[in-house]
């Protein structure tokens, strides 16, 4: 069993099978595009973001985290009519950050996962906002109540997504 040693702590590193690596992000992007048609409130969630954080914290490899985040983000961008790279850049940073933080912190319990999701949701939102406004010149709406609600809802859903990912991850 491969173990990484960071700051004297032993942290377990997991991996995902190839089908899970491909199908879970695809399913997340698909559900993100399909569910809002049936349940309009679902637009407050960002399933691909949760999957990015989940994969990154489990693998604990910054390289894998940023590449996974980048690919998921670009796939998500390609389904919109906006420029490709907005979600790509934001999720690249989140993937890198989550995996780097995953090395240093224990993210196996639900409370830590809840807080981690809140933190990276905010990071993702801020990075996306800055790029969309600064680079793409898009008008952005910022509503604090909406953001708080969205942040909390994503954190709750994130705990569930992490639990599902726990079932498919394998120890290295």
């Amino acid at each position: 069993m491969a173990i990484t040693y960071t700051s004297g702590e032993q942290v377990e590193v997991y991996r995902f099978s190839i089908p899970a690596t491909i199908l879970i992000p695809l399913a997340a992007v698909f559900l993100q595009a399909w569910l809002p048609l049936r349940f309009p409130f679902f637009t407050i969630f960002d399933l691909p973001l949760l999957v990015t954080i989940g994969f990154a914290t489990a693998r604990r490899s910054p390289l894998a985290g940023l590449l996974t985040g980048s690919l998921i983000g670009i796939l998500q961008d390609a389904l919109t009519h906006q420029l490709i790279g907005l979600y790509g850049i934001a999720k690249t940073i989140v993937g890198f950050g989550a995996s780097s933080l995953g090395i240093k912190l224990d993210v196996e319990n639900a409370g830590a996962r809840f807080l981690l999701t809140i933190f990276f949701y905010v990071v993702h939102k801020v990075v996306y906002f800055m790029i969309a406004r600064g680079l793409a010149g898009l008008r952005m709406a910022w509503s604090w109540p909406h953001e708080f609600l969205s942040c909390g809802a994503n954190a709750l859903l994130g705990v569930l997504v992490f639990m599902l990912l726990d079932r498919v991850k394998q120890r290295t």
Binding site: P62, L63, L66, I84, G88, I89, F96, I131, A136
Partner: peptide, 19 residues
């Protein structure tokens, strides 16, 4: 890791600029 991160981000920013 940091170099790859900067490279990936740079490529995407460049792609955005082109678009």
């Amino acid at each position: 890791n940091l170099i790859v991160l900067v490279g990936v981000l740079f490529a995407q920013v460049l792609g955005l600029a082109v678009q």
